[in-house]
Write a protein that binds this DNA or RNA. Structure first.
Lengths: 220, 220
DNA sequence: TAGTCCAATATTTTCGAAAATTTCACAAAC
DNA sequence: GTTTGTGAAATTTTCGAAAATATTGGACTA
């Protein structure tokens, strides 16, 4: 793996985790000592992150972490809901045995990891499996572009979901495992309407939960 | 404007125009002489283009122009149709006087340029106005993320539409100005159903037309 | 002939310094 | 007191060379 890729992963994670807060200026000299590499790989990583809207940049004034707000979070979640609903309907239509198997496997792996007490690196493994599950659901949509958009929006919402998870305070109760199970069940039963409804509800509930956490965090 | 931005624009245009054909390896040494700059700005441009799926890269083996195919074109057009339909409905719901004005102005500018005999640089001006018109239609959707996805997908389809335009042979007849006019009319009349239907038809017709041109070009 | 190793070459990736530009502090003018 | 200008410092951007890695071609072996 090249240094540029390491830089990309590291900075992306630091932004998602909230370690690099929104609108933080990203000075090359600081990044150089923080990540222990030269300008070139850092700039390459920043350019990629810019295209993916994790950072912004102004000519000759450098990079900074992209702003964040409840409105942006809701927009990203709502757009995700709409595009993934389309993709899920297509996947249910075209999915074969392999698609079903991937969903079952991803759900199982996700539940196993969710049952383990999360700490440190485990969070990222849980997160990886969460991503895999949602991707598996729509993987048979036969549209590479929809999958790309999904991946981009998933990343955009991670920036809000992970900090909400890490700093969660009192808030609405949820049984996410049950929600995921019901979602997979409807998809495997090829009940398009029910599956899309459950996906919609799942995202709307998540968006609401994150908004509550964000408001709590802002008040604290 | 920085060299990296110039490189980005130049390479992007060369890919869209078809001057850099699909799957062409992009060797740094060649690009250096072709665009007259050093490695750094070129690599930064390539990293951004990679995130936007105009080029692909493999670690230590460098970059190449992303592949293209009729299937990819149809997928990109279909995804555009779906996301823009959602955005158009939202824009019709939320659009104010300014939104209407932007549509009228963009349509007028597009028609003016379309009436001029196109040659050389004029093509890019026409293209710019075409983009502006489609963006104006959905600009009031109140969803920055949907607009970003639109912009990315518009770029992806440009790669197919522009070469089809430049090398067009015999094919289905179209009156694009009339299509655009009818689309704007339905949007301004706030007829969501009609506007979305016209948008859908517009894209499906375009996708079909491009597919015909691509097959003709492949046969020649 | 087909396959494998090795050296030579080509290419990508990374670094450190130079060039270009912005930012900041402070003085001068109104 | 506010604005305007100016030079130093900080920062980004770019270049050219060095390091790391991949590719090629030819000799050698089975």
């Amino acid at each position: 793996m090249t240094l540029a890729n390491k830089a990309y992963d590291a900075i992306r994670m630091d932004i998602i985790r909230g370690d690099l807060a929104a609108e933080t200026p990203l000075r090359l000299a600081e990044l150089k000592t923080k990540y222990g590499m030269g300008f070139s790989p850092l700039r390459e990583a920043l350019n990629r992150l810019q295209s993916e809207h994790f950072v912004q940049s102004v000519d000759l004034k450098g990079f900074r972490v992209a702003p964040s707000s409840i409105e942006q979070m809701q927009d990203a979640m709502e757009t995700r809901r709409e595009i993934e609903t389309l993709a899920l309907a297509a996947a249910i239509k075209h999915g074969d045995d392999l698609w079903e198997g991937a969903i079952v496997a991803a759900l199982h792996g996700l539940n196993l990891q969710a049952a383990r007490p999360a700490q440190g690196e485990d969070l990222w493994e849980l997160e990886r499996r969460h991503f895999q599950f949602h991707r598996a659901l729509i993987s048979a949509c036969q549209s590479p572009w929809k999958l790309r958009v999904f991946e981009q929006l998933y990343g955009a919402t991670e920036r809000y979901r992970i900090p909400a998870l890490l700093n969660r305070t009192q808030g609405p109760e949820r049984d996410i495992s049950t929600e995921h199970g019901a979602l997979a069940e409807a998809a495997l039963a090829r009940d398009t309407q029910l599956a899309c409804d459950r996906l919609s509800t799942h995202y709307q509930t998540t968006a609401h939960w994150i908004a509550v956490q964000m408001r709590n965090a802002a008040a604290a």
